[in-house]
């Protein structure tokens, strides 16, 4: 048992609790709601076990689905984000990301911002496509994805700054 594992378990539970108690009840203009619980997947350590990330993301999503009565849409979106995370890393930080020690919860550089942006957008578009499940709602899907992504990114950055560990 190392501390990274404990931190991740703590994050998993805390983000889920905050999402269910607070952010699920936020409905700007009736349909825009932020989903900052995916910070768990975004902040997962870069070089740790990848299958662990995929399994825990599935559990995260299926718990959200249980509370939202939404079938399996959160689970699907989370698993897709967890699987494609290394490719988004490559896209945002360049090829040699594995050799750098990327700490996302430090100051916000353009690379880090683009990583969060792409991740949130990927998750939300999968989520809303599966939620609507019909092509006649394509504009509705895009609009929801756009506005919800903006809110999720804003709240995610605020949360990252709030839980930033103290410099030793």
């Amino acid at each position: 048992m190392n501390s990274a594992l404990l931190v991740n378990i703590f994050r998993f539970i805390m983000l889920l609790a905050i999402q269910i108690v607070i952010f699920n009840n936020m409905n700007f203009l009736g349909y825009i709601s932020p989903y900052p619980y995916i910070l768990y997947i975004i902040l997962y350590p870069v070089n740790s076990n990848r299958s662990g990330l995929i399994i825990s993301s599935f559990l995260l999503g299926i718990t959200m689905d249980m509370f939202c009565n939404s079938g399996g849409i959160h689970a699907a979106a989370c698993v897709i984000l967890a699987y494609y995370r290394p490719y988004i890393f490559k896209f945002s930080f360049g090829l040699s990301y594995e050799y750098q020690t990327i700490k996302l919860n430090e100051s916000l550089t353009p690379e880090r911002f683009s990583f969060i942006l792409v991740s949130v957008f990927l998750h939300h578009i999968v989520l809303f496509i599966l939620e609507a499940f019909q092509f006649k709602f394509i504009w509705d899907i895009l609009l929801r994805t756009l506005f919800s992504s903006v809110f999720t990114i804003l709240i995610s950055i605020i949360i990252i700054y709030l839980i930033k560990p103290n410099k030793r």
């Binding site: 399994i55 299926i62 399996g72 849409i73 699907a76 967890a82």
Partner: peptide, 14 residues
């Protein structure tokens, strides 16, 4: 693993 979990969640969605 990814395909398995994705399959489960898509089945639940459908």
């Amino acid at each position: 693993l990814f395909l398995l979990l994705l399959g489960i969640s898509l089945a639940l969605t459908i």
